[in-house]
Design a binder for these strands. Structure first.
Ligand SMILES: [Mn+2]
Ligand SMILES: [Mn+2]
Ligand SMILES: [Mn+2]
Ligand SMILES: [Mn+2]
Lengths: 218, 218
DNA sequence: ATATATTTTTAGTCAAGTCTAAAAATTAAT
DNA sequence: ATTAATTTTTAGACTTGACTAAAAATATAT
């Protein structure tokens, strides 16, 4: 059994490994968990003892298969709870993360299986992130940052990169939500801003926004 | 903000105060929480610092109004989650307690309000225990132990005293569930066992069982 | 290649929560 | 009213997870 802290470390390493081929550095973990590098070193030794990470001094850390499974399961729980909060309890997508951070540590296999079923076996959370299955596998869909699309290309908005509540609330204000069709009308070379058509409405968005929105090309 | 441990102590004291007029003893709390008296003394001092209990050395402890409110809210969460597990996730009444022990510590006012609403503002949990409202008030219904009813009296089964999973599974096996009508057909002086009619079925039950079942008299 | 900067680890400390063993206070029994 | 038994508190220690400051290792720059 793993403590709340251990689970959070495993999850952090899991997320960091998704876009990093080498071993994960002490500092990277410390930054992600908003803690100190010395604390990370301590914990990483303990996780290594428990055989959920491989750790060589000064060389960074990688998850073992067991570690990966445990981390994926925490992520699975986090995302299923987020779906629950949005679909059943009328939370908006910018309100769910902090509560899910707590709920992801509840221990009960039956609870999570039944929740999954109750929600109709969702494949993605409210931010478009994939939900790992019971074995920790996640099927990623083909998606591109809106900023990488060319003029006249179009697709469906399927996710966000930054899921801070500030960004999500901004999207709400602009009427940008998952599932909507977006077409690039024009790209401005000067500041890389975009003129887009969202459903049937015209909108100008900055490059910063376009770099945080995922589109599944049509 | 209160830690998980502090919440568990407050809840234990809350439950103990329900049937005890004097101050709650260190030992009683230790037994309820399956911990040592010395640990209780330490924690009780801390709770006293935080003004959620009144504590005088060797004199036991009582909850302050603030302490009562916090404890009642934990109980509210515990029982609402139990309802959720049974009504929405198909748990049986003997499976919910341990998971609810974890869920009761999740911190989010919105979560619990929405859950309450989602469940249709239930007044009682799956074991017949009342659910405190947002202010910590609970309306107790008139109920009597089955063992105290006289021959030919009848009523509805509305709760259990012992809610261990062993007892609950025993009741399941005998077909005794909340909401069913029970009539006393006969009482055996020799061993205080009862012959009862449950709905339209005849059943013999021991005094031990009858002392753990609550009936709302017809 | 050597010096400088950065990263990582170690060493020592701390708070929360628990424990055991011993001392002190209270309660019960003679 | 003493003595004996029980309950409660204190004292000291341990574990987890964090921190600061200093030392050691690695990476970068001249
Ligand atoms: Mn989240
Ligand atoms: Mn998410
Ligand atoms: Mn319960
Ligand atoms: Mn209950």
């Amino acid at each position: 059994m793993f403590t709340l802290s251990e689970e959070n470390y495993l999850k952090a390493i899991y997320h960091l490994e998704l876009d990093a081929s080498k071993g994960i550095s002490t500092n990277a973990i410390a930054e992600k968990l908003d803690t100190k590098a010395s604390s990370v070193t301590d914990m990483v030794k303990k996780l290594s003892e428990k055989e959920v990470v491989i750790y060589k001094k000064y060389k960074g850390v990688t998850l073992t298969e067991l570690g990966k499974t445990i981390a994926a399961n925490v992520v699975r729980k986090h995302r299923l709870w987020e779906v629950f909060l949005v679909q059943k309890l009328n939370f908006s997508w910018d309100e769910v993360h902090d509560v899910a951070e707590q709920l992801e540590h509840i221990k009960s296999a039956k609870l999570i299986d039944q929740l999954d079923s109750f929600l109709g076996f969702p494949t993605h959370d409210p931010h478009g992130d994939p939900i790992p299955d019971r074995d920790g596998n996640l099927k990623t869909i083909e998606k591109s940052l809106l900023a990488t699309l060319s003029k006249n290309e179009s697709g469906i908005c399927v996710g966000v990169d930054d899921s801070s509540s500030e960004f999500l609330q901004f999207l709400d204000k602009k009427g940008i939500t998952l599932g909507k069709k977006i077409t690039i009308l024009d790209k401005e070379d000067f500041d890389d801003s975009l003129s887009i058509l969202i459903e049937d409405r015209k909108l100008n968005i900055s490059n910063k926004i376009a770099n945080n929105l995922y589109i599944k090309k049509a």
